[in-house]
């Protein structure tokens, strides 16, 4: 398992976490190469389908990250996202997609360090957990 480098898909909101991820880049806060950013306007835009798709395609973890409560550019999209995450966390673990593989965080525009740290922590946690089995399953 030594060589296992997890793939993390991060759905980040255009306003807060995307800025933080950019900031982590410009302030040379190096973070692991495992993360693949997908920018969305709002975490409230993250359709459960996207997350299911990511896992079935073999993503080892999915991060959804947006503005802090009260800070959503679109007023309350992050609260709705939280409910969708709650829903998925009730479904996916039953099929062997460990709950640890799916995370929701609030990361503000200035939290570049926190973004980098979140990714680092996720990588080490997922390394411990091992690869997502669906990575090699011949199904989607």
């Amino acid at each position: 398992m030594e060589d296992f480098e997890p793939t993390i898909i991060a759905f980040v909101c255009n306003w807060c976490t995307y800025t933080a991820a950019d900031l982590a880049g410009t302030s040379r806060q190096s973070y692991p190469t495992n993360v693949r950013l997908i920018r969305v306007m709002c975490t409230g835009m993250v359709d459960p389908k996207y997350i299911i798709k990511a896992f079935l395609e073999g993503a080892d973890a999915v991060l959804v990250s947006g503005c802090h409560p009260g800070d959503c550019h679109y007023i309350n999209g992050n609260y709705k996202a939280r409910r969708r995450m709650k829903l998925l966390k009730a479904i996916l673990p039953q099929y062997g997609f460990d709950e640890k593989r799916l995370k929701l965080t609030w990361i503000g525009a200035s939290d570049g360090i926190q973004f980098a740290r979140t990714i680092r922590d996720m990588v080490s946690e997922i390394k411990e957990l091992g690869p997502n089995e669906a990575k090699h399953a011949a199904v989607v």
């Binding site: 969305v40 306007m41 835009m45 359709d47």
Partner: peptide, 18 residues
């Protein structure tokens, strides 16, 4: 913001660009 699109189960509501 796309909250409508992710709420819509069959992509009848779509956000252009997403």
């Amino acid at each position: 913001c796309g909250n409508c699109a992710s709420e819509c189960p069959n992509s009848a509501s779509v956000v252009d660009g997403f």
